[in-house]
């Protein structure tokens, strides 16, 4: 059941790329509010962590989070966000992946998805630390990354989970998941 089929690969990468497109539109919105509302922009930052956990909740196979995250970052790099987004995509995807692995890829609920987002957020913090975005006064550092963590949990946990629920209602997930009533029990 955990074996990857070609369909899974293509769908995972497609999900990553659709997120890349959404992130592009999101980014325009974000650039607009960036100078006016610095706190607001951290609250919307969770969007960047959604792709990995979302793909895992959809495909439910080891490696889905990392692959989708890389695909999304790849698209972002192609449309001109700079090659460094590949690093962010890789690290954020990897951190989410590690969390799902810690639960042996068997938990698909809100809390686990949200925690995966928080792990991605931690990954982005570590990269920011090296890049230099984190050279802030202590209070500003706490506000910035505190808000980002909350946002990560809300976007990857609550939002991603409920969008997946809605997708399940459209029956599109039956195309890619082997159906077993046992799996549906985990969701309730």
């Amino acid at each position: 059941m955990k074996q990857w089929k070609f369909t899974d690969v293509l769908v995972t990468i497609m999900v990553g790329i659709v997120f890349g497109v959404i992130m592009k539109f999101w980014d325009d919105f974000y650039t607009l509010i960036k100078p006016i509302l610095p706190t607001m922009r951290q609250l919307l930052y969770g969007m960047w962590f959604m792709v990995g956990p979302f793909a895992f909740l959809l495909i439910r196979k080891p490696g889905a989070a990392l692959l989708a995250s890389l695909a999304g970052a790849g698209l972002s790099a192609f449309i001109g966000h700079g090659v460094q987004v590949l690093m962010y995509g890789f690290v954020q995807g990897l951190m989410a992946e590690l969390l799902f692995a810690a639960f042996r890829y068997k938990r698909y609920n809100i809390v686990v998805a949200g925690l995966a987002g928080v792990m991605s957020c931690l990954g982005s913090f570590l990269l920011d630390l090296y890049y230099g975005y984190a050279d802030l006064e202590a209070w500003a550092l706490v506000v910035k990354y505190g808000l980002r963590t909350i946002s990560a949990f809300v976007f990857t946990g609550v939002f991603a989970y409920s969008i997946i629920k809605a997708l399940e209602a459209t029956k599109v997930t039956t195309l890619i998941r082997p159906v077993s009533p046992d799996e549906y029990k985990h969701l309730d």
């Binding site: 293509l10 990468i13 497609m14 659709v18 959404i22 959809l58 599109v172 997930t173």
Partner: peptide, 16 residues
């Protein structure tokens, strides 16, 4: 995102 993903997943699956 719901209609966007539903359509993209269907299309990707057909293509695969």
């Amino acid at each position: 995102s719901v209609p966007l993903f539903a359509q993209s997943i269907r299309r990707a699956q057909r293509m695969a």
